[in-house]
Design a protein around this nucleic acid. Structure first.
Length: 192
DNA sequence: ACTCCGATTGGCT
DNA sequence: GCCAATCGGAGTA
C-alpha cells in the first residue's frame, strides 16, 4: 500500500507516479482492483492557479478535502449521475487532487461485469464514471484516508516499463488549459 | 430562491 | 455525431 508521504507531494508528480500502480477496493472477502492507466492532475488557487479545478475559487464545503488533506478520497457527483474519484495531494492548505480516469481490470472482473452490466472487459473501467461503478466507490468515501481502509493504492507487481503520454485537458476555456492529463501510451483501457 | 451547467456516459440517428 | 439523463454546487439577488 502506498504510504501517506507518497501523496504529500506536488500534484503533477503524484499523478504521474500513480500510473502503473493498482487501485483496489475490498468489501468482505471480495477484492476488486485495476491498474491505473489514466489520470488527470488538478491544482487550485494557491501556488499553481488552475481555472479548471473545483478549488479554483477558494475553499468550499465540496472541495475542502482538497485543501485539508492528502492521501484521501475526494468523490463528487458529476452531471447528477456519475461519481468521480480523486486522490488528494499536496500539503495541508495547498489544494490538489488527482482524478483517476481509467483502470486496466485486474481482480474481480466478474464482479465488475455484473456491477457495470456489460461483458466487454475493455469498457469496464475505461472512464472516470465507469471505474467508480465497477469498484463500487461512492460519495460515502469522500474524505476517507486511502492509507487506512479498504480502499487503497498498492504498488503494481508487474512490468513497470511503459511510456507516459501527456494530452490536453479538454473542456476548458481557450488559453487556460493546464494540459495535465497523463496516460499509459498504447494501453487498451484508457478512456475513449 | 432561482439559474446555470459540469473533471460523463450510453443510446440513437 | 448528437443528445438526454439528473442533481447539487456555486454564483447571483
Amino acid at each position: 500500500m502506498l504510504d501517506k508521504d507518497f501523496y504529500k507531494r506536488d500534484t503533477e508528480v503524484v499523478a504521474k507516479e500513480l500510473l502503473g500502480n493498482t487501485l483496489a477496493h475490498e468489501t468482505g472477502d471480495q477484492k476488486v482492483s485495476g491498474r491505473i492507466v489514466e489520470v488527470e492532475a488538478y491544482y487550485g488557487d494557491q501556488k499553481v492557479k488552475d481555472p479548471a479545478s473545483h478549488a479554483a475559487n477558494g475553499k468550499t464545503e465540496r472541495n475542502k478535502v482538497m485543501y485539508d488533506t492528502y492521501g484521501c478520497a475526494y468523490v463528487y457527483l458529476c452531471y447528477g449521475i456519475h461519481e468521480l474519484f480523486n486522490i488528494t495531494t499536496n500539503s495541508v492548505g495547498e489544494p490538489g487532487a488527482v482524478l483517476i480516469r481509467a483502470l486496466e481490470p485486474q481482480d474481480g472482473i466478474e464482479i465488475m461485469k455484473n456491477r457495470r452490466n456489460t461483458q466487454n472487459v475493455e469498457k469496464l473501467t475505461s472512464g472516470p464514471g465507469k471505474l467508480t461503478r465497477a469498484l463500487n466507490i461512492t460519495k460515502d468515501y469522500n474524505g476517507l484516508d486511502l492509507t487506512k481502509g479498504d480502499l487503497y493504492v498498492e504498488r503494481y507487481k508487474g512490468d513497470k516499463n511503459f511510456n507516459i503520454e501527456r494530452t490536453e485537458r479538454i473542456g476548458v476555456s481557450e488559453g487556460k488549459d493546464l494540459k495535465l492529463r497523463f496516460l499509459i501510451k498504447g494501453n487498451k483501457f484508457v478512456s475513449k
